[in-house]
Design a protein around this nucleic acid. Structure first.
Lengths: 337, 337
DNA sequence: GGCGACAAGGAATGCGCTTTCCCGCCCACG
DNA sequence: CGTGGGCGGGAAAGCGCATTCCTTGTCGCC
């Protein structure tokens, strides 16, 4: 059965196309009650389903929202996506999702595809990469904004458009101070490649804060920005622990929870126990990991809220270009006891 | 700057609209090389971005794919979404995401909204609920299919359309047999409400297989189908363990990993240790949980592959109505040692 | 050299809808 | 009783593109 068009509904109800449109798709002008009833009945009988594409074309606005994340299966991003999706629904919009697998090219292509779909706004979540990649993405986004779109970044600013910033620096600083307050003095930072801005921000802020308060950051280990990176660094950390066993106990700050989890897994295999032999802290407070043993000390950031804020900035009346830094909460748990 | 239209490009290149269209948007007819160059140059200079909405209207096909999941922040669904997204990209399609928060009404609305967007196909992932809700969803999906769409369910069949089935029964049976082979005999099943079909299938198959092989399923605990449900059941399980401490050791089969994790967390608080005092197995093998201690025995199901298969069934030439049951792998780890 | 086949480009139509503009009607008012 | 204003309804003009159909030009072949 071919789909019924609005014209079919109008014919069946014995009214004009214009009237049918006004009845079914919220116009300022509301036709008389009898016509309204007739049109609605006809629509029901024909199983009429509005064609959103045609509507978008005629209205010059799609009601779509583009969300690009680096990896939707990563709990960090899926939490942001959950918040974004909920906020989009609240604003009566649908979300187009792109998961780029951390490929800068795919990221740009996604933004271009969204622009082609004439999305009302695009939200890009994820840490930035090299200046070149960032510039290319910025160009893509700026072109989109210049053509009347809106863009919001969750993470580090790129191009024009608004930004929702995770509290990388403030959170890392607060974590360092909390650990120092517990009397911990010797630290190692486990970070991703320095081109990963999120990692760098957390690393730098933690290091600076620790040193400022009389702590020692013995080393900054660089590894992959992932669970496997943390796992791989386990051997190095174990060695550090052993060779300096006589000194004061060591605390490792892994710049994300998943890196911390990978690290702890490897340490366990090597017979290094947390927190007995070495303490470990993470960052993000990923919900799925909250039941990990030992419970991970970390910095809780409101991931869903970030997604939701980003969408609100994208569709709301907040001035474009605004920067929103969200709050955080240091969580001291067993892993640094 | 207003967006350039294809007409603007054609004007600037001094060709007709038809030619510009043929050059820029893959037609069977390819104009002469000089014209191609002129059109491409003009498009570049004007920053032309095709309007996918208009294209969809003219072509009567949107290149969109609808994906509805119950909760995108749940690793189960986000893994499926990752696979689906990747497959969609491979087929040159964009995915519209709806996360319904396990609300059957939102689920139907999402399908309706997707139908309005004239998506090529919709993929619905998630366990089914009451017969009423299922029927309503089925009606919505069938209407969509009748109008020329395609639908694929990941989970229990609903309405027409293809199905990608998780190996609930076969997996649970295999897990039971593996545990029995290890010599375990006394079981408790921890499931969600019986209206949750996934839970019921796993529960029933496990119970039947265990009993068939001479095992005893002492009890089937019903709780929420979530991490918190598992946590809440911890007290009951602890009591069971204590009151029958003299008998053979107990094994709890929680019908999902996240329930198992919640259960173990509560047991730990109560001083009941896994696997020393009670053994626990889960189902799904959620990646984020693989570093949990003790390592969880479970049934690995290929979540990403399921998402990808669903999309392939949705866009491919597989006969509509096909049922694909995916494979699985029993993972015996420390939690049932 | 003439004819037909074929290719390449352009004009025009239509995809399904919104919205402006216009028309006719009724009412209020002078 | 005449006129202006307001309102309800319909005709029609797009929105930006794909595509059909037509025209023109070119080449091959007898």
């Amino acid at each position: 059965m071919a789909r019924a068009r609005l014209q079919d509904v109008a014919d069946r109800a014995g009214v004009s196309l214009a009237t049918a449109s006004r009845v079914l798709n919220g116009s300022a002008r509301q036709p008389g009650a009898d016509l309204v009833a007739r049109v609605k009945a006809a629509a029901g009988e024909l199983g009429y389903v509005v064609n959103a594409q045609a509507q978008a074309l005629a209205r010059a606005r799609s009601g779509l929202l583009g969300l690009v994340v680096q990896d939707i299966s990563d709990p960090y991003f899926s939490s942001i996506a959950a918040g974004a999706q909920a906020a989009a629904r609240a604003s009566g919009r649908l979300v187009l999702l792109a998961s780029t697998g951390r490929d800068p090219v795919a990221e740009r292509e996604a933004v271009a595809a969204f622009a082609a779909q004439r999305v009302d706004a695009v939200v890009v979540a994820g840490t930035r990469w090299t200046p070149d990649d960032d510039a290319a993405l910025a160009a893509e986004l700026d072109a989109f904004v210049a053509a009347g779109g809106r863009s919001v970044i969750v993470g580090q600013p790129v191009g024009d458009g608004s930004v929702v910033r995770p509290p990388n620096a403030t959170g890392a600083r607060a974590l360092a101070e909390a650990l120092l307050a517990q009397g911990q003095r010797r630290f190692v930072v486990l970070g991703g490649p320095t081109r990963v801005v999120t990692s760098r921000e957390r690393t730098d802020a933690f290091t600076a804060a620790a040193r400022a308060a009389g702590g020692e950051v013995a080393e900054v280990l660089v590894t992959e920005f992932s669970r496997d990176g943390g796992y791989a660094a386990g051997d190095d950390v174990a060695e550090l622990v052993r060779e300096r066993a006589a000194e004061k106990p060591l605390t490792v700050f892994a710049v994300t929870d998943v890196m911390a989890i990978g690290l702890i897994a490897r340490l366990r295999e090597l017979g290094v126990e947390v927190p007995r032999d070495v303490r470990v802290a993470g960052f993000d407070d990923v919900p799925t990991l909250r039941d990990h043993a030992p419970a991970l000390s970390t910095v809780r950031i409101p991931l869903e809220e970030m997604g939701s804020l980003a969408v609100q900035a994208a569709v709301g009346d907040t001035a474009p270009g605004a920067v929103t830094e969200v709050g955080f909460e240091v969580q001291l748990r067993d892993s640094t006891r």
